[in-house]
């Protein structure tokens, strides 16, 4: 089966492509918004306000700029990679060998 998602719906040919792409873009926009907020937001634009809060010795804005944003980037890429694996499977565009195993 190629796109199990459409079982019983029988959509017009080619439409699944637009839907796949739109879902990809939506995921991207959400994750990139978080990317912007943790780095440019917490680490630069609002760093002074956040620095008034202190956690285990770190002023919070300073912590975001030098530690937190990097951890967040890592999580964002992981979420993206895993969600895209799922999306690829859903639309039957994941890369598999002749036996249907992931390459």
């Amino acid at each position: 089966m190629t796109h199990s998602k459409y079982d019983g719906h029988s959509p017009p040919e080619g439409d699944w492509r637009r839907e796949y792409w739109r879902k990809n873009l939506r995921l991207m926009v959400i994750l990139l918004s978080i990317w912007f907020i943790v780095s440019f937001g917490c680490g630069i634009l609002f760093v002074e306000q956040l620095n008034k809060i202190e956690i285990v010795g770190f002023p919070l804005g300073f912590w975001f700029a030098q530690q937190g944003s990097i951890y967040a980037f890592l999580v964002l890429i992981l979420i993206y990679a895993l969600r895209m694996d799922r999306l690829d499977d859903e639309y039957g565009v994941s890369e598999r060998n002749g036996d249907g195993e992931r390459l």
Binding site: L32, S39, F62, A65, Q66, S69, I70, F73, I77, Y80
Partner: peptide, 23 residues
Amino acid sequence: SDGSVYLMGWTGGYVLLAMLIAP
């Protein structure tokens, strides 16, 4: 504190790479 530009700048680019370019 101002050195943070390098920490964020040289790691945040990978988010862009992973989502906008690499695949």
